[in-house]
Design a protein around this nucleic acid. Structure first.
Length: 431
DNA sequence: GTAGGGTTAG
């Protein structure tokens, strides 16, 4: 850690923000935030932390820019440690807990919280959020139960936490408890968490009810709420509802567009996905890497091989770095279209480990194009990547069945039993 | 001057 007396790093270019600050002249820090500058100026002028009017803004900046503000955050951290419990203001303490949390120092956040002279429901909510964000749902739940008061924000934090970390049913139950037992009115953020949970369970009817509530309350679809609703409908395969919901969003951002494009890419018509992508670009909305996953997926499901590679080049020319998902789409694109050798070539020469999704995509392509030899290769790669993956055996035996290789089929079934792999039918699938 | 939300390859 840096010592409290280390000088803040200097930036050769003074920022616009810095010239607006009062107090002694100073230059902007590399993070470009005037708050640190002002904080440092007051510190240099000999003010104690408690009397530094820029303490909270500086801590807020640490929380907002955790990556860029690391040096600044470390120094404020050091100053706070040195001053012990000198800071008495509950807002400053709360900002400190949040700054630690956003910097990934959950232990420090907890320590600071424990040392607070007094707490408000906001302080509790900050701690709760810190624990949820760190993925420690057990600790978060303990805090939620222990809190002296809870408000809508507390409920939203725990509900969205459960939903995000894969506990959708629990999130739905908590939503019911909040609304029915405690009589609290859900707001935008509550509905986002609830609708995401409903989406994961696939409860379209409950999703429609949630949409109805959103309309009655006239909640804004501009932000995350619109995205959550569109996504819920697309995952349930209700593309008509997804599209009309998308159309009703007044200020569409890249995530609204990406959600609806993802839906048409998966469920068709795929040219709808591509024309929406064109429309989006004409409106000047910048696609991101996720948008291109959807676009490539549309090409793959629509059998548009050369278009897919054109979009892939376009993506790179826009400065977006391809990820394993993009390569996965390309392998799928080639494989589905019957270019099995090219697909295998691409899969074998990826910068990263292809992972089980790519091998199972290739295996599925081998099955539908009847290439037994390559199917065996893909199946063995898939078994290496994910030994318990039942679909590997199923796809392979389907391939043998198509090729009428009954002995190989029997052997595969036997191996499946030996490994204790079973394929659960229908809804209770591998997810 | 302190709190909560969303899109990703089979």
């Amino acid at each position: 850690m840096l010592s409290p007396t280390t000088v803040f790093p200097r930036n050769p270019k003074p920022s616009k923000l810095a010239s607006n600050t009062t107090g002694p002249r100073c230059r902007a820090t590399p993070s470009g935030d005037a708050a640190f500058c002002a904080f440092r100026a007051h510190h240099r002028a000999g003010r104690s932390l408690d009397a530094n009017p820029s303490l909270i803004p500086a801590l807020v900046a640490c929380a907002r820019l955790p990556a860029e503000a690391e040096a600044e955050a470390e120094q404020i951290h050091a100053l706070l440690v040195k001053c012990g419990g000198a800071v008495s203001d509950v807002h400053a303490w709360t900002s400190l807990v949040r700054a630690y949390a956003r910097l990934g120092r959950v232990y420090n956040a907890r320590k600071a919280f424990d040392g607070m002279p007094n707490r408000t429901v906001v302080s509790w909510n900050v701690l709760l959020d810190a624990l949820v964000k760190s993925g420690n749902l057990d600790a978060a739940w303990e805090v939620f139960v222990e809190m002296p008061q809870r408000n809508v924000v507390s409920w939203n934090t725990i509900i969205s936490g459960f939903a995000r970390l894969g506990w959708a049913q629990e999130a739905v139950d908590l939503f019911v408890e909040m609304t029915v037992v405690y009589g609290l009115a859900p707001d935008e953020a509550t509905m986002v968490g609830f609708i995401s949970a409903v989406r994961d369970i696939g409860l379209l009817g409950l999703g429609r009810c949630a949409h109805g509530y959103v309309l009655r309350r006239e909640l804004l679809l501009d932000g995350a709420l619109g995205v959550a609703l569109i996504n819920m409908y697309t995952r349930c395969g209700s593309m008509g509802a997804a599209h009309s919901c998308f159309s009703s969003v007044s200020n569409k951002n890249v995530e609204h567009w990406t959600s609806v494009i993802t839906g048409f890419a998966a469920h068709g018509p795929q040219d709808m996905a591509l024309s929406l992508f064109g429309e989006m670009r004409q409106l000047g909305i910048e696609p991101n890497g996720v948008t291109f996953v959807a676009v490539l997926n549309a090409c793959s499901h629509g059998g548009l091989v050369s278009e897919g590679f054109r979009y892939f080049s376009l993506m790179k020319s826009m400065g977006i770095k391809p990820t394993i998902q993009h390569y996965g789409c390309l392998v799928d694109l080639l494989g589905r279209a019957g270019f099995l050798v090219e697909a295998l070539n691409l899969a074998s020469n990826l910068p990263k480990d292809p992972g089980f999704v790519i091998w199972s995509s290739l295996l599925a392509a081998c099955r539908s194009h009847g290439n037994v030899e390559m199917a065996e290769l893909a199946a063995s790669k898939l078994a290496d990547a994910k030994p318990s993956h039942g679909s590997s055996y199923v796809l392979l035996s389907n391939t043998y069945a198509r090729a009428k290789q009954w002995e190989d089929l029997k052997m595969t079934r036997r191996r499946m039993e030996e490994h204790g792999v079973s394929k659960k039918p229908g809804l209770a699938g591998s997810r």
